[in-house]
């Protein structure tokens, strides 16, 4: 392979110097090995600088799973890593990778020490409109009385009153939810090292599709604090009308930031 059209597919950077070859295959069956610079290691496989395109969605999915597996494996064996986005290829051979590690040594080291002993988790909190509406009605005798008045009045008038009542309940729900969101987020922050609010709507399993997401966070959590976070989420989950998804651990994908790299 000519150096000019060589490339290295990147999986992760480890916070120690380890020359190794992995028994497990990488993306598309590639041989995964490491490139070391001092006490930093990049996990790579050799490829051409013209990225391959997966043959259909199934194969692309397969490749992504393989990427995840290698990142998880390196995390398991060598502690927290700096993960690369899927499909990142550096132009050049091992020497170029090593140079790149050298050039960004300080930044990578700082980032890796920030991640030491931590992992990323996703927290999604949903509410069920109907359950919360019911709760609001129960707690608010005024609204309850209005609802009871609806029976026995002409249909046209009832319709108008019903709409007004619905709107009132929606407003109350909104207020309740934004209060809960602030409270939960603050408590989750207390257990986490760093928290990002996610902007994009997540893809969720079928059973969550009817529910409304109101807290969606990526949390960087210390290993020793995961249990505490889990217990907090349990308490939140116990509340009527609220349910929690707690997912992870992931390599710190949402928290990697190397300005200028």
């Amino acid at each position: 392979m000519n150096r000019n059209n060589e490339g290295r597919y990147l999986y992760s950077v480890l916070n120690r110097g380890i020359e190794a070859e992995f028994a497990e295959a990488g993306v598309n069956g590639a041989r995964v090995y490491t490139v070391v610079y001092r006490d930093l290691t990049a996990v790579v496989h050799a490829c051409s600088d013209r990225p391959e395109t997966a043959d259909g969605e199934d194969e692309a999915m397969e490749w992504i799973l393989e990427h995840i597996r290698v990142v998880d494996l390196t995390t398991e064996k060598f502690g927290t890593v700096v993960p690369f986005a899927f499909g990142t290829i550096i132009k050049g051979d091992d020497e170029v990778v090593s140079e790149w590690l050298g050039e960004n040594y300080a930044a990578l080291k700082a980032e890796l020490s920030r991640f030491e002993g931590k992992a990323e988790y996703s927290v999604q909190i949903f509410y069920e409109q109907e359950l919360l509406s019911g709760e609001i009605l129960k707690k608010n005798p005024g609204l309850q009385a209005q609802k009871e008045k609806l029976t026995g009045i002409p249909r046209g008038t009832a319709y108008l009153f019903e709409r007004r009542l619905e709107q009132k309940i929606a407003e109350e729900t909104e207020a309740l939810i934004s209060g809960l969101a602030a409270e939960y987020e603050a408590r989750i922050r207390d257990c986490s090292d760093s928290v990002h609010s996610e902007e994009k709507k997540p893809r969720v399993p079928e059973e969550y599709k009817q529910k409304k997401l109101f807290v969606f966070l990526a949390c960087l959590v210390q290993d020793s604090k995961v249990q505490e976070l889990g217990e907090l989420l349990d308490r939140i989950n116990e509340r009527e009308g609220i349910c929690v998804r707690f997912i992870g651990p992931f390599a710190p994908y949402s928290f990697v930031s190397l300005e200028g790299i």
Partner: peptide
């Protein structure tokens, strides 16, 4: 997937 495709270190 969201993490892998949109996050992680970018060169």
């Amino acid at each position: 997937l969201d993490r892998l495709l949109e996050k992680g270190l970018v060169l």
